[in-house]
């Protein structure tokens, strides 16, 4: 009888794993949103809005979050901002709390902004290389799953504080 129960449980687990039909973009957008909840930005108490910046609001996580711009973080609304490649980085860090940079743009952007970016903005990429280039966090696809990687060294140097609960579910790079 117990074996029967076990078989039924495994079948159920297997089926439930396959049912996951979310796209990587959807997952990333959800992760971005949830990450924002677990990061204390400087002067967090005075913040009226949490700003998410994307280079593309028509595709990818930016498009999904933009559609759900009524979401709230800690009781306050979010703001989805489209930025351009031409925008100066210093200006960018003043306008954004979390800036998402997809994999296709990483090479173009990283080399130019790592040194100039302010210490208050969280940059989120899609690869390990993004972290190597000085990115704060990266939502890396590993098989069918999206894993959150955090560059602990960078985090330590910035003004925002990543809560331990987020760190608990993150992988660190470098280890």
């Amino acid at each position: 009888m117990k074996i029967m129960y076990l078989i039924a449980a495994f079948i159920f687990i297997f089926c439930s794993l396959n049912v996951d039909a979310k796209t990587p973009h959807e997952i990333r957008s959800a992760f971005l949103y949830q990450m924002a909840k677990l990061i204390d930005f400087p002067e967090q108490k005075n913040k009226q809005v949490t700003r998410f910046c994307f280079y593309d609001l028509n595709h990818g996580p930016g498009a999904i979050l933009n559609k759900n711009n009524n979401l709230k973080i800690r009781g306050k609304p979010i703001d989805i901002i489209k930025v351009n490649l031409s925008d100066p980085f210093r200006e960018l860090s003043k306008r954004c709390d979390i800036t998402y940079i997809d994999e296709t743009m990483e090479d173009d952007i990283l080399s130019s902004w790592t040194d100039t970016i302010t210490l208050n903005m969280v940059t989120v990429g899609e690869s390990i290389e993004f972290l190597e280039g000085g990115g704060i966090a990266s939502l890396v696809q590993e098989g069918s799953k999206i894993r959150l990687y955090i560059n602990r060294q960078e985090v330590a140097q910035h003004n925002f504080k990543v809560l331990s609960r987020l760190l608990a579910v993150s992988k660190f790079y470098p280890d």
Binding site: Y5, L6, F12, I13, S16, V19, D20
Partner: peptide, 26 residues
């Protein structure tokens, strides 16, 4: 909670040593 079916699905489990697993209780 599964996003599609909105029903609980197995996520993970723990069984103490020398303790057989128990069926899902969903």
């Amino acid at each position: 909670i599964d996003d599609v079916t909105n029903k609980p699905v197995f996520f993970t489990s723990y069984n103490a040593s020398k303790t057989p697993p128990v069926p899902l209780k969903v």
